[in-house]
């Protein structure tokens, strides 16, 4: 089904898209049909910079298990680093 479900988050960072690196401002997460992954539904994450147009986009399509494993990996990596090391206010 098309779930229409869409979650948005403001983000800061960069990603590598079809035309090289770009600054990212928005992450969009939805559980819906993928474009490419061989499943009927996946967790689709788009890293976007709407001000730079539709092609300013880094896209991934993950199974539910993969998405949850990714969340755990991100949390584990952050927990292993000194608190605040990768936070936005850096001197």
């Amino acid at each position: 089904m098309c779930t229409y479900l869409t979650e948005l988050a403001e983000i800061q960072g960069s990603g590598k898209g079809a035309a090289g690196y770009l600054p990212l401002t928005t992450a969009m997460v939805c559980v819906d049909h993928p474009q490419h992954a061989p499943f009927e539904h996946t967790v689709n994450i788009d890293f976007l910079n709407p001000a730079m147009g539709p092609s300013a986009r880094v896209a991934v399509e993950l199974t539910e298990e993969s998405a949850l494993a990714l969340i755990d990996a991100i949390r584990a990596a952050l927990a292993a680093a000194p608190p605040g090391l990768a936070s936005a206010p850096q001197s």
Binding site: T6, P50, G53, P54, S55
Partner: peptide
Amino acid sequence: ASPDDASATARA
């Protein structure tokens, strides 16, 4: 835009 980029943009 390519269809997938357009779809993501419209969805956002």
